[in-house]
Amino acid sequence: MKVNGVPVTPPDPDARLLDYLRDDLGLIGAKEGCGMGECGSCTVLMDGVPVCSCLVLVCQAEDADVTTVEGLRRTALQEAFVTGQAVQCGFCIAGMVVSASALLAEHPDPTDEQIRAGLEGNLCRCTGYGAIVRAVREAAR
């Protein structure tokens, strides 16, 4: 497994990927909001595809290239989240940024409907999504 480009050897194949990232590797960006794949706060990329890391066992990712929010290239996306005031409590934001980066990789110039569909798996309770959608739109420009 590679995490953010670094080869790693997880000690426990039965651990959840989320726990391995947070507890063993200290990558605390991915958060646990529900533990059952409903909230998306733990979203990471596995070979470029967004997944809920609470639903993935380490053994399922043994050959994967895992990218967490910490491993994303600093881009206009994060800047747009900051300046567009899309961050309130911020607990969902790492997952949002990861999902949005996958969305922009697939649709460099997404429609609003594509943005909303791409972020549907990430719950936010603070913003009502408006500023987040605007930030993704802004980053795509």
Partner: peptide, 20 residues
């Protein structure tokens, strides 16, 4: 004006109370 901690949040480095 953005939240004080937003820059740390978007790169995943802000420690929430449950991250400590």
């Amino acid at each position: 004006m953005p939240a004080e901690q937003a820059r740390e949040i978007v790169v995943g480095t802000l420690e929430y109370v449950t991250d400590l």
